[in-house]
Amino acid sequence: MGLRYHNILIAVDGSKEADWAFLKAIEIAKRNNAELSVVHVVDNRSLATLTPIDSTLYDQNQKFGDELLSNYKDRAEKNGVKVQTIIQQGSPKIAITKNIAPRIKADLIICGATGLNAVERLLIGSVSEHIVRSSPCDVLVIRTPKDAEEEN
């Protein structure tokens, strides 16, 4: 095992918190000479309640995820980090810890302290909280500087 990380998973959702976490993930990957897996989970579960289901919303969510990951991949490569991108549909809470992390043999998961889905966070807890509770490996939850200032 050792003290170095080899496979780092960074979960992104388009929020400024995830972007700040990505910047930290780049630095940690560089220090550890680790591969970075940038992961975006397209959560279309709420669209299933719409009748009739409008497939353009699914397409828009997928396109947003593809563009998001492409941008992050370019930024990681410009920083000299070996990177792969993973996009998957489903619940971010389940997909990240139960599916993606074991599949890529992640030894560190990095995520922002909060994300885009405030309603879900209020009702059933945040994605980052779930990752901490159910992760098969180390987890680093990143707070943005703005969050830190608000708490003091």
Rank of each mutant, 00 (worst) to 15 (best):
E67T: 07
L68I: 08
L68Q: 10
L69H: 01
N71R: 14
N71T: 15
N71V: 09
N71G: 12
N71I: 07
Y72H: 06
Y72V: 02
Y72W: 05
K73H: 05
K73D: 03
K73V: 09
K73T: 08
D74Q: 13
D74W: 12
D74S: 15
D74G: 14
A76N: 10
A76Y: 05
A76R: 08
E77I: 03
K78N: 15
K78Y: 12
N79P: 06
N79W: 02
N79I: 11
N79M: 08
G80L: 07
G80T: 14
G80D: 12
G80H: 10
V81Y: 00
V81K: 00
V81M: 01
V81A: 00
K82R: 13
K82C: 06
K82H: 09
V83R: 14
Q84T: 02
Q84V: 00
Q84R: 10
T85W: 01
T85I: 01
I86M: 01
I86E: 02
I87H: 05
I87Y: 06
I87K: 07
I87P: 09
Q88S: 06
Q89P: 03
Q89T: 13
Q89E: 11
Q89C: 04
G90C: 04
G90F: 02
S91M: 12
S91F: 10
P92E: 12
P92N: 11
P92L: 11
P92V: 04
P92T: 06
P92C: 11
K93C: 10
K93H: 11
K93M: 15
K93L: 12
K93G: 10
K93A: 14
K93D: 07
I94E: 15
T97E: 00
T97F: 00
K98C: 02
K98D: 01
K98P: 01
K98E: 02
N99E: 11
N99V: 10
N99Y: 12
N99I: 11
N99A: 12
I100M: 10
I100E: 13
I100W: 11
I100L: 13
I100A: 15
A101W: 00
A101K: 03
A101E: 02
A101Q: 04
A101T: 03
P102M: 07
P102T: 03
P102S: 08
P102Y: 05
R103P: 09
R103L: 15
R103I: 14
R103C: 13
I104E: 04
I104G: 08
I104F: 00
K105W: 01
K105G: 05
K105N: 06
K105H: 08
K105Q: 06
K105A: 08
K105C: 00
A106W: 00
A106Y: 01
D107N: 13
D107W: 03
L108C: 12
L108F: 09
L108A: 14
I109G: 08
I110W: 06
I110V: 13
I110E: 06
I110H: 09
C111D: 06
C111V: 02
C111H: 09
C111S: 07
C111E: 04
G112P: 07
G112V: 12
G112H: 06
G112A: 09
A113T: 11
A113K: 15
A113S: 15
A113F: 12
A113I: 05
